[in-house]
Design a binder for these strands. Structure first.
Lengths: 95, 95
DNA sequence: TCAATTTGACAAGCGGCACTTGACAGACTA
DNA sequence: TAGTCTGTCAAGTGCCGCTTGTCAAATTGA
């Protein structure tokens, strides 16, 4: 059921939140209560959605913190699957 | 639909994974490929489930990375809701 | 009972990352 | 032309997951 290639949440913020409202990064950062650089890094996909940011996005644009963090989780997991074979684990069979 | 008071994933690892199999923290850490301290901190609820750890838990005990990380997300979010009123955001109305 | 194992904790250190303020040059705009 | 917006760099802070090494206390087993 996992998405084929999950988008970075930052791009979603840009396309689904900022652009439809004609909001600049500077203005949106001001509303969110974070620095312009911090939001810029997010929307340019150089930073992820933190718990704090998920709450801010929800308060400002709606949806739920679970949704925002779920997008981030899906993205992180997709990236991690690239190196999944590097993670060596002894499967546990029985006691 | 959020859980009332989500358990820390570390407790679940201890009760649902280690104890049923009679696994010691030391032995399980060895199987997981992490240090004893690292797993100890998790099961004693002093550390969270990272993406890396979620993959290790899945490989060793089953379930899915999404499930493990989802448990962590639910826990983190529950904790964050305590200070949710401290996060000041200007709700965005219109352009 | 004695010895080995297990445990939780502490310390020091490393790397990553989200966040801040300050600054800069380039682009766009009124 | 002047002001705004942008991406990015730098420097610094704090948190956290992870490591190795160590320790005392508790548990376990021959």
């Amino acid at each position: 059921m996992a998405m084929h290639n999950p988008p970075h949440p930052g791009g979603i913020v840009r396309r689904q939140c900022l652009e439809p409202l004609g909001l600049t990064v500077t203005a949106a950062a001001d509303h969110l209560g974070v620095s312009r650089q911090s939001l810029s890094e997010l929307v340019n996909e150089h930073a992820g959605v933190s718990v704090d940011m998920a709450i801010r996005l929800t308060k400002a644009f709606g949806s739920t913190p679970e949704t925002w963090l779920g997008l981030q989780m899906a993205y992180d997991l997709w990236q991690a699957r690239r190196r999944i074979d590097d993670i060596k684990v002894d499967r546990i069979e029985a006691a």
